[in-house]
Each structure stands twice: as C-alpha cells, then as structure tokens.
Simulated assay, not measured.
Amino acid sequence: MEAKNTMTLLGHIAELRKRLLRIAAVFIVSMAAGLFAAPHILTLLRTHSPLHVAWNVFSPWDGLRIYMSIAVVLSLLPTIPFGMYQIWRFVCQGLKPGEQKAAVRYIPFAASCFLVGVAFAYFVVFPMSLRFTAGINRQIGLVETYGVSQYFGFMFNIMIPLAIAFELPVIVMFLARIGILNPSILKGMRRYAYVVLVAVAALISPPDLVSHLMVAVPLIALYEISAWLTGWVHRKKQRAKEALEHAVTDGSYSAT
C-alpha cells in the first residue's frame, strides 16, 4: 500500500511537471513571436496615440525595457489562458463531474472580462486622462517631452487596475459558489462598495465630474452584475439542496 501511495504521488508530480513544461513551451514560442511583433505594436501604439508627440528615452535601457515589456505582454496573452487550462486539467481529476463543468466555465469568462477591462481602459480612460494632463501642462506653459518609459508607465497604471476590477464578477461568483459570499452580504456592503469604487474612479480618472462618472458608472455596474450573479448562484444552490432533501425524504436517493 505504501509503494502504491508513493507511485501515486510520483505520478502526480510527473503529471504536474509535464503540464508546467507545456506552459513553458507555449511561453517561449509566444515570446519569440512577441519579440518579432513588438516593433510593429510599438509603431501602431505611437501612430494611434491620443497625443501625437515624440517618445524620448532618458536612459540607455529605456528602449530595451519597453521592447521587452511589450514582448512579454504579447507572450502572456496566449500563455495565461493555456496555463489556466493546463492547471484545470491537472486539478480536475480530483473534482466531481459537476465541479469540473463549473470550474471550466470560469476560464473563458475570466479571460473575456479581462480583455473587456483592457479595452475600456485603453480606448476610454487612458485617452481621457492623457488629454487632461496634457491640457494642464499647456495651461501652465510646460514643454511636453514624454519619456517612453514614463508614457507606458502612466498607461499601465491605468490599464492594470481597471483590468483587474473587471474581474470582479468572476471573483464574486466563485466566492458565492464555494459559500463565502451570499446576496445578503453584498447587499449590506453596497453603500461601502460604492464609496470605494467612486474613490478608485477618482484616482484613475481626471478630476472632473464627467470623467468620474465615465469610470465610476461601469465599476458600479460591475458590482451590481456581481450581486445579481451571486443571487443566481445562491438560488441555484438552494434549489439543488432542496431537491436533494426532497429525494432523501421520499427515499429515492441512495448514497453510493
């Protein structure tokens, strides 16, 4: 029995190693493609920039740093979904069929929410913030000289928090699925959540009412969608529990 358990443990380790190697292989291939595509992406971003200004470098490493950063981001686009799928394939062996179906749905849903958040941040919030700051600079007579590292740092500081915020429905639905959250908890937290979301919107958007609303309203809508999804998951669990209790009462349920 001890030898069997040892072989089972070694088999799990070998399986995990195989899937990690697959993820690493996809990352390496994607990184090679990212290195090839990075100059074209940089040209595209510069051409469609909200402000047509020159990108300057203030350090010998700035160009290489941005080049590699773009390549890494491009390589992560296929690697993250593939990695999530490989991790799911590894852990699904210990899950029930119903749990497997529930878990696999989170992968495309999470990826879709992340991409929507990135698109909203890049096409709406980032141009709005950049034009606002540029307008302030011109009003006080400053010469706009943008460093490429600072430019992308400003862009990522806006995009990353919003992309993560758009994962809120996935996180809340998962927590509701495992029983940590329920509709009453979210309902009690609503007023505090609104304050936090408005504060976040104020931090990542220009300080005017229209900009605040353009960012705060989608964040609040995400919270309400999360609350609705939590209620849906909770009602579904309650119906399943009641059906099981009814089956046990009628004697039609038998444990295997």
Results as ranks from 00 to 15, higher is better:
residue 2 E to D: 13
residue 3 A to D: 13
residue 5 N to G: 00
residue 14 A to N: 13
residue 15 E to C: 03
residue 16 L to H: 04
residue 19 R to F: 08
residue 25 A to K: 02
residue 26 V to F: 00
residue 27 F to R: 01
residue 30 S to M: 00
residue 35 L to H: 05
residue 36 F to Y: 09
residue 36 F to N: 00
residue 38 A to F: 04
residue 39 P to Y: 05
residue 39 P to M: 09
residue 43 T to N: 11
residue 44 L to C: 01
residue 44 L to E: 03
residue 45 L to A: 13
residue 46 R to Q: 13
residue 47 T to E: 12
residue 47 T to S: 05
residue 59 S to M: 01
residue 59 S to A: 13
residue 70 I to L: 11
residue 74 L to T: 07
residue 76 L to M: 15
residue 79 T to D: 02
residue 82 F to W: 09
residue 87 I to T: 14
residue 91 V to P: 00
residue 97 P to K: 07
residue 98 G to N: 12
residue 106 Y to G: 02
residue 106 Y to Q: 00
residue 111 A to F: 13
residue 115 L to D: 00
residue 123 F to N: 06
residue 125 V to F: 04
residue 128 M to S: 14
residue 128 M to A: 12
residue 132 F to R: 05
residue 137 N to G: 06
residue 139 Q to H: 04
residue 139 Q to A: 13
residue 139 Q to F: 07
residue 142 L to C: 02
residue 143 V to Y: 02
residue 144 E to V: 06
residue 144 E to I: 12
residue 153 G to V: 04
residue 153 G to Q: 05
residue 157 N to Q: 13
residue 165 A to G: 03
residue 168 L to P: 06
residue 169 P to N: 06
residue 175 L to I: 03
residue 178 I to L: 09
residue 179 G to V: 04
residue 180 I to F: 13
residue 185 I to M: 14
residue 186 L to K: 02
residue 187 K to F: 12
residue 191 R to D: 07
residue 195 V to H: 06
residue 196 V to N: 03
residue 199 A to L: 15
residue 201 A to P: 12
residue 203 L to M: 15
residue 203 L to E: 02
residue 211 S to H: 06
residue 212 H to F: 11
residue 213 L to M: 15
residue 216 A to N: 09
residue 219 L to N: 10
residue 222 L to W: 03
residue 222 L to V: 05
residue 223 Y to E: 06
residue 224 E to I: 07
residue 226 S to I: 08
residue 230 T to D: 14
residue 237 K to S: 14
residue 239 R to F: 05
residue 241 K to E: 15
residue 242 E to D: 14
residue 243 A to P: 06
residue 251 G to A: 07
residue 253 Y to T: 04
